[in-house]
Design a protein around this nucleic acid. Structure first.
Lengths: 128, 128
DNA sequence: CAGGATCCGCCCGGATACTG
DNA sequence: CAGTATCCGGGCGGATCCTG
């Protein structure tokens, strides 16, 4: 007895991420986390230092920046280049994987920036 | 890596989202929220009912599903079609905007699914 | 079947202080 | 300059019960 919805399964998604225990959820969570996406797009324009990131991302705390960067290092998305000089000099940049992810992320961010305001149910052509 | 870097420093991003008060952060947060992305990709294969969504997304609670759906309705990404029949019949589907966002989201999810594991220097899934 | 309301634990995330 | 360590409050999110 089945009255299933018309869910024509597309070949686009394997659907593993929909399973509760799938590890891809963690990685996806890292990428799409509140500060994670902002860190990635900040690095999309080129390498930045700690203080540069802190200044680029408005409102982020030191704790969250450090935590996000460490997570991305472990995920292999961000590279940490530290030089043992007297005034410490550390540069963060995207790895190849990180750049790939960020390229996928940027259109989404741009869409969000382009779609702020519209009232629910209203057309993009607001004529009010 | 000897590839000349010339493509990742473009003026692709206006950077408004990096400002603490930018409203686009909220919309972006909705889209990239833990359950939000799973709801969107679940609807990418076609309309689903409440119970269908609940079954499709492993681990989601009723509260989070309701909250996420209401947020997406307000954002104009998801359409709620309720029919006043004796056994209530409610169908959720993506709006045009919702489909656009989901199309941008899917590659990211697929990338995450394709890149689970390789974490250089990290312990392989430590769960006792 | 589709949701609202409520209680509450837990962890995210901010502020501050300290270090190399 | 580039972080780490610690405290702690707010809210995210889960479980349960109730309604139309």
């Amino acid at each position: 007895m089945t009255t299933p919805e018309k869910s024509h399964a597309g070949p686009l998604l394997r659907g593993e991420v929909l399973s509760p225990g799938c590890p891809s959820r963690r990685l996806l969570g890292d990428i799409t986390s509140k500060w994670g996406v902002l860190v990635l797009i900040s690095l999309s324009r080129g390498p930045l230092r700690w203080s540069g990131l802190l200044r680029a991302i408005g409102g982020i705390s030191e704790k969250m920046l450090a935590q996000t960067l460490r997570t991305f290092e472990a995920d292999g998305l961000v590279l940490r280049d530290a030089r043992p000089v007297v005034p410490p000099h550390v540069v963060y940049s995207l790895t190849a994987d990180g750049r790939r992810v960020t390229d996928l992320l940027l259109p989404l961010v741009e869409w969000a920036q382009d779609h702020v305001t519209p009232v629910p149910g209203a057309e993009p052509d607001g004529e009010r």
